[in-house]
Design a protein around this nucleic acid. Sequence first.
DNA 1: CGGGCCCACCGTACTTAGTACGGCCACGCT
DNA 2: AGCGTGGCCGTACTAAGTACGGTGGGCCCG
Lengths: 222, 222
Amino acid sequence: MAKPVSKSRGDRAPLTRARVLRGAVAIADASGIGALTMRSLAQELDVKPMSLYHYVANKDEILDGIVDLVFSEIDLPSADGEWRSEMRRRATSARRVLRRHPWAIGLLESRSTPGPATLRHHDATIGTLRRAGFSVAMTAHAYALLDSYVYGFALQEASLPFDGPDTVADVAEPMMQRFSPDEYPHLVEMASEHILKPGYDFGDEFEFGLGVILDALTRSIP
Amino acid sequence: MAKPVSKSRGDRAPLTRARVLRGAVAIADASGIGALTMRSLAQELDVKPMSLYHYVANKDEILDGIVDLVFSEIDLPSADGEWRSEMRRRATSARRVLRRHPWAIGLLESRSTPGPATLRHHDATIGTLRRAGFSVAMTAHAYALLDSYVYGFALQEASLPFDGPDTVADVAEPMMQRFSPDEYPHLVEMASEHILKPGYDFGDEFEFGLGVILDALTRSIP
DNA sequence: CGGGCCCACCGTACTTAGTACGGCCACGCT
DNA sequence: AGCGTGGCCGTACTAAGTACGGTGGGCCCG
């Protein structure tokens, strides 16, 4: 005679919209966005597929939701910090977050209804730039430039076949077989003399570009 | 009594791998990557679904194939041009191509086996930078920066809900209802004072950032 | 000229996924 | 006790990827 539990079905936590979205992120992180199905999500949450529809209208709403959840993980620039360091912090944080959730990058392209965290994020960033003395037009330029760089870098990082500075050579070697130095001489030079060298980490390129961009923006404050 | 055609089934062109891939691009361009299914593609080509499998192993191979096809549309930098103008031309062309095929951006993240056009493209670009006097390491920096910017810009463009400078206000107006000036003051300022002004075109931001980047790179040639 | 072979194409069917529709059952309120 | 309600689910339909095994018309060989 088990102690009577208040709820009949097991004693798992009750479903909520937040739990649904967090579960979806967990699945996408672990196995890619392709593994996120209503059925796999239901299983993760220990319910049956149709139960999810009491918290989201359809799968698209889940996708919109997890994109906003990802945005909420990015550091907001603080209102009173120095703009350059705040922008650097924001960019670095955004890259780290998108590295943790690489599937989110591709989703940005298809989802066009930003959630509240996304809007808050944009608002804070624009605010920091405006307070730094950038005109409205210049803020638009700067923001487009910064975000393009961050997103594009994250996109390139995500499409790399390896994951850290560890197994670069292992993955690249078989690939090198595919193209002879005659066909792609510069690619081979770049690979053999630089990228395949121990210690090379594509992620380190991020700082260079970010510095270039911030320097250039500094010069365009009135 | 119809003129006897040589082939029994209708007189449509015979299937080829190239025709399959071109058809796939056509569908993705017209209706988005979501509308590209083996069945829709078969219908487009006037065959039955299973016929496609004589030319591609599976759908993934089609996705890899069309990404490479997209790359092949991007202008290669010419070997003997001035590096700055060649890089500008390449970037501009890439943006135009990715605007024509926005679905390709999201695909870049998931596909990690570059095709021949992709490799040729990278090789030519690296070659131009090396010939301009950039060191191997600096070329890696420059290329990462340039490509990040181009991809990221294309990604942002693709996620805009409108398509040209025409219906910006129409789309943005209802969106403005969702956030009050109290919640997102800077966003509202940016929208009302800049982006919603007639004549604003996000695409114009591209030149600014590209110029900034090319200027910065110029300064880093030994 | 006839028979066989091959290759391009296809029919059928199985699996997985999204989701419409209508229950059903425990709880709490009266 | 009856009843409503809210949270969960069973069933089933549709769409999509693709395994597997044809099949039939053109062409080559004899």
